[in-house]
C-alpha cells in the first residue's frame, strides 16, 4: 500500500511537469529556423523530394550510421544472452544436426536469392518488382519442399505444424510483402519510406515465414555476412563522399539527375538500399534468436 502511494506521488509529479509543458506549448505556425534551412536546402542541394530521407541519410547521416551500429550490437548481445547452455543433454543434439543441416543447406539459396533480388532492385528500376517477386516465390516454394521432405521427427520440442490456411496465405502474401519492402527501400528518396521502414517491412515478412513454418531455420551466418558487407559498403560510400564531395556521407559525388526521377539525388538511393538491407538482416537475426 505504501508503495502504491509513493508511485502515485511520483506519477503526479511527472504529471505536473508534463502539464506545465502542455500549458506552455503553442502550435507552431511557421517552421523553426533550422527546419526552414533544411526544407529549403534539401530539394535544391541534394535533389531529394522526401526531405525526411535527406535529413536521415545526409544531414544526420552520422547519427544513422551510429544507429545501425547500435542495432548490430543489439543483435550480437541478444545472441550472446540467448545462447543455448552447454549443459544440455547430448541426446537432443545428436538428432538435430542432420535435419537442421539439411534445412540450412536448402535455406541458403533462398535467402541469397532474396537478397540478390533486393540488391538488383536498388540498381535497376525496370525489373525490380518482377525479380523480387519471382525470387520470393521461389524462396517460399523451396522452403516448403524441404519442410515436406524432412518431416518433423524431432522429439517433444518439435513445434506444432501451422494450419493449411496459414501456409497458403503465407505463400500468397510473402512475395507481396517482400516486393513492397523492396519498393519502400528503393523509393525512399521519392515518397514516404526509406531504409528503416523498408527493412522493417522485410523483417516482418521473414517473421511471417518463420511463423507459418515453425520447423524451418534461417541461415543466420549468411545474414550476418550480408549485413557486415552492407555496413562496409555504407562506410565506403561515406568515405567516397569525403574524398569526392564535401564531407563524410555526402551523397553529391554522383550526379543529382532529374528532380523526382527514380535515379536521382546522388548516392541517396544507394545508401538507402544498403541501410534497408542492413536493418532487414539485423531485425531478422534478432527475431530468429528469440525463436530458437
Amino acid at each position: 500500500m505504501m508503495r502504491h502511494i509513493l508511485v502515485a506521488v511520483i506519477v503526479v509529479l511527472f504529471g505536473l511537469i508534463f502539464a506545465r509543458m502542455v500549458g506552455g506549448y503553442v502550435e507552431l505556425d511557421a517552421l523553426r529556423p533550422l527546419a526552414l534551412d533544411y526544407v529549403t536546402r534539401a530539394p535544391v542541394e541534394l535533389g531529394t523530394p522526401n526531405i525526411i530521407t535527406g535529413i536521415l541519410i545526409t544531414y544526420r547521416g552520422f547519427d544513422t550510421l551510429g544507429e545501425v551500429a547500435v542495432l548490430f550490437m543489439v543483435a550480437a548481445s541478444v545472441g550472446l544472452l540467448l545462447k543455448k547452455d552447454d549443459a544440455k543433454p547430448a541426446s537432443a543434439k545428436v538428432s538435430s544436426p542432420k535435419v537442421s543441416g539439411e534445412k540450412t543447406a536448402a535455406a541458403k539459396p533462398v535467402l541469397a536469392k532474396t537478397e540478390a533480388a533486393r540488391a538488383a532492385a536498388a540498381r535497376s528500376a525496370a525489373a525490380k518488382a518482377n525479380a523480387s517477386a519471382r525470387a520470393a516465390t521461389a524462396g517460399s516454394v523451396a522452403v516448403k519442399s524441404t519442410k515436406e521432405a524432412a518431416p518433423a521427427e524431432d522429439d517433444e520440442a518439435a513445434p506444432r505444424e501451422a494450419s493449411e490456411i496459414v501456409r497458403t496465405g503465407t505463400e500468397i502474401l510473402l512475395p507481396l510483402i517482400f516486393t513492397f519492402g523492396a519498393y519502400v527501400i528503393v523509393n525512399g528518396h521519392l515518397s514516404a519510406g526509406g531504409g528503416f521502414q523498408g527493412g522493417a517491412v522485410v523483417a516482418s515478412g521473414v517473421m511471417l515465414m518463420l511463423l507459418a513454418r515453425p520447423g524451418s531455420t534461417l541461415n543466420v551466418a549468411l545474414l550476418s555476412i550480408i549485413e557486415s558487407f552492407a555496413g562496409v559498403f555504407y562506410v565506403g560510400l561515406g568515405i567516397l563522399g569525403l574524398v569526392l564531395a564535401g564531407g563524410f556521407l555526402d551523397p553529391r559525388f554522383l550526379p543529382k539527375g532529374e528532380f523526382g526521377a527514380f535515379i536521382s539525388a546522388g548516392a541517396i538511393p544507394l545508401i538507402s538500399a544498403l541501410l534497408g538491407i542492413k536493418v532487414g538482416a539485423e531485425l531478422s537475426v534478432i527475431i530468429d534468436r528469440f525463436r530458437s
Partner: peptide, 18 residues
C-alpha cells in the same frame, strides 16, 4: 507518414512478436 510506417511495422508488428 514516414513515422507512421515505421511505427506500424516495428512498434506494433515486430515488438509484439518478440
Amino acid at each position: 507518414p514516414d513515422v507512421a510506417m515505421a511505427e506500424a511495422a516495428i512498434g506494433s508488428g515486430l515488438a509484439t512478436f518478440i
